[in-house]
Nucleic acid binder design. Sequence first.
DNA 1: TATTAAGTGGGGTTG
DNA 2: CAACCCCGCTTAATA
Lengths: 221, 221
Amino acid sequence: MKLVIADCSAIYTGRGDSVLPRGVRAIMVKADGSVSIHNDKSNKPLNYMKTANFIEEKNPDGSTAWIFDSRKESLAITIHELLMSNEIELPLDDPGLEKDGTEKHLQEWLSKHPEYLGEGFTIAAQEYQTGNGPVDLLALDAIGKPIAVEVKRIAMLGAVDQCRRYIDAMKAAEFDGEMYIDLLRAEGMIAAVDIRPKTLEWAKKHNIHTVIIPENWREIE
Amino acid sequence: MKLVIADCSAIYTGRGDSVLPRGVRAIMVKADGSVSIHNDKSNKPLNYMKTANFIEEKNPDGSTAWIFDSRKESLAITIHELLMSNEIELPLDDPGLEKDGTEKHLQEWLSKHPEYLGEGFTIAAQEYQTGNGPVDLLALDAIGKPIAVEVKRIAMLGAVDQCRRYIDAMKAAEFDGEMYIDLLRAEGMIAAVDIRPKTLEWAKKHNIHTVIIPENWREIE
DNA sequence: TATTAAGTGGGGTTG
DNA sequence: CAACCCCGCTTAATA
C-alpha cells in the first residue's frame, strides 16, 4: 500500500463524469490497483476507483499523471506536488467484513414470522418471480388468498407502485403448474418498519394492505 | 488526519453487530472524527464509522482502545500494537467533487431544447409541483396540451409509475389561477437517454409517451 | 422532514 | 469465464 500526501487534481470518466479540482489530499493506492482520494472530512473518499491497471506518466509541465484504467472507466490523477510518500507492506490474507443486508434480513425474518403479516398467514415463496420483477414474499392469508408482500425498512410511494406492478404481472401470468395458487385473486401488501403518511394514503387508494413491523424485530425470537 | 499502521481488531455495534478479527491494517482518522480501517485490497474499507465522538482509553492488558461513539452506533478499535503513526495537516476548505451529466443537467438542457421532446413543444415550468411530488418538466405540445415529462438518464419501470402519479395528482388538482393550462387533459412522457425494453412496454400500456435523447446531448449547442 | 436521484451497484443469466 | 442486462436497495442531496 502506498500512502501519499499530494497537491493533486483528478478526472473521472465512466458512467458519469466528474472533476476533482486541485487541492492537497491523502491518496491511498493499494496492492490490487485500487485507489482512493481523501480530504480531511467524512469516512468516504472524495473519489476512488476499484481495482484497475495503474500507469504512471510524466506530464510536459513536470507534474505526474497516475492513470487507473479499467474496461469502462478511468481515473486520472494529476500529482502537482508530492508532499509525502510512504510505502507500507500489509498482509494480504485479511478477511473481509460481512455485509449488512438489512432488508434481506427483514425478509428472512418475516418468512419465519408470517403471523406479523396477519393472523393465519403463511409464506408460499420468497422472491417469487413475476413478469415485472420478483415479489419479496408471496404469502397466503387465512383463507388461502395470495398476497404479494413488498418488504421495506422505510416504505415510500414507489413501494405501492411496485406492489401494483407485481399484482398486474401475476394476474397476467399463465397458470403455474407447480403452484396451486389462484393468482387472479392476488392482492398486495406493504410490510415495513416505517410507512410514510402519503404512502399510507396512496396504498389505501389502490387497495394495498399495509403492516407495520415492530422496530425491534431483530430482538424478537 | 491521523494515518496509522497497527495490529488491531474492531467491534461495531449499530444496525447490526460485526467483529473484525485481529490483523495488521491501515487506519485513517479524520479531523471530523470519522474513521476507516483498510487492508491492502479494494477501495472500500473493512470497516468504518462516520463522524463521531472519539475517545482514547487504555486497556488493562496494555493495548489501547479507540472508541468512536455516535447516537445510535459505536465502533471500538483495539490497538494491540502501533507500528506507525503520522499526523498530517490537510486544508479543510477542500472544493470537493464536481459531477457532470447528472439528471438535473439533462433537465436543464431539455428546458432549453424542448424541440427534442417533440415538434412545437414548449416548456411551461420546471419542477412543477403536484400533490404527488414535482414533475421534472411541464411541457406544452404543439396544440397546447400539457405534458408531464419525467426526465431520466436511464428510465426503468418506476419512471412510468411516477408519470402516472403526477398525472393523477394534476387531474385531481384545483384550478390554478396562475396557470391557464387545462390540467385535466394532461398526458405523461418519459424523456431519457436510455429506456429499457420492459419500461417501453409498460409505458405504452399506460399511454405514457417516450422520447429518446441523443447520448451526446451534452455536446449539442 | 420529506422526497427524489444516484450508485462510479450487484447478482443472475447467457454466450 | 466473462460480459451484460436487468432490477433493487441504500444513501445522499435538496427543498
